[in-house]
Design a protein around this nucleic acid. Sequence first.
DNA 1: CTAGCGATGTATCGGGCCGATACATCGTGC
DNA 2: GCACGATGTATCGGCCCGATACATCGCTAG
Lengths: 191, 191
Amino acid sequence: MLDLAILGLLHETPMHGYELRKQLATKLGAIRAAISYGSLYPTLRRLQTAGWITEAGETPADDADVPPLTSRRGRVVYKITAEGKERFQDLLARVGPEAFEDAAFGVHFAFFARTEVEVRLRILEGRRRKIEERREGFREVLARAAERLDAYTLELQRHGLEAADREVRWLEELIANERKNNPPADNPRRP
Amino acid sequence: MLDLAILGLLHETPMHGYELRKQLATKLGAIRAAISYGSLYPTLRRLQTAGWITEAGETPADDADVPPLTSRRGRVVYKITAEGKERFQDLLARVGPEAFEDAAFGVHFAFFARTEVEVRLRILEGRRRKIEERREGFREVLARAAERLDAYTLELQRHGLEAADREVRWLEELIANERKNNPPADNPRRP
DNA sequence: CTAGCGATGTATCGGGCCGATACATCGTGC
DNA sequence: GCACGATGTATCGGCCCGATACATCGCTAG
């Protein structure tokens, strides 16, 4: 799951670990917390061993750096290899049940701009089905076991039901737009 | 985190692992997926070693079992000890920053019926602050970096922002009710 | 009658990911 | 001139998950 995210980011531009973590945090902020270094660095090593990324010596042309960052220390800049790009496409198109889990779905979604329409649809529909099942679970608990649960547990169920319901509607909107070949940006929002 | 959940459930009634997992799944369904056996059984062993739970021989009085379950196999029924109850109260009242994380917050909330009002309020307020910060993050990304992100990433941010916003409002409602000493069940919902 | 299946039930193993921690450098402000 | 926060790399112990294995029970189809 981290593999896909890291390869995806390095596909756009070479980066070092620290920067990678920051980008991940903003790009996937809606899905999961910032990734830990205890995951990041071992994963980078694994990807490098597999031949999907390589160390790229610090780029000498630092033109237009945000502030005048003259530092040139132990930063290790990674870039994706040809095999890495293949691997990325492979992971991106693989639509197993894992792709519908919370975290994995978010990562897939974050790279939808690089995904085929049919794959996007299959992922969105799989995710919808999963959330629908979750929603059904809440409904059953609320209908069948309401009297056996205390007020707070019930409130948790209600909140979960509402959240699931809203996510289903969100997914349905996305699916409909996808079928009309509209990217989500074309979907007008009230300001 | 599992410790608190398991002790809490065993506080209500003795149970074996399988049942424990099912109860956890419904009680915490809104928060986290069903707990894995790969976590459950090692945790039970740990709790037992610590002296917080003990094996209770299969209860002989099986009166009013749901179906006539005559089976009496290798089921291991656990029950909480006096030290376990102390430990549970201790964990329940400990309000560190971990208690505001997604999963831990859910577990704490699920046992609010057994929690002091002041502790409930501190947890709800800490959680609210955390979600507010998350919401601020989304807002900043949407305001400052919108042009650098693709449509799907933006949509993810919008969705995250909306979810965070709604959770803040939910928490605010709960806090207000808490201050008026109303349990959440008194909060009327349209059917 | 029996073979198979799905639910119940306990348990382990490898691995992913996290939080805490350590350590070093750079620019800035006091 | 020095403390502090941001930048940056790295490891370690531990929690938790998914996959897997294995055994029993009750039901039902052949």
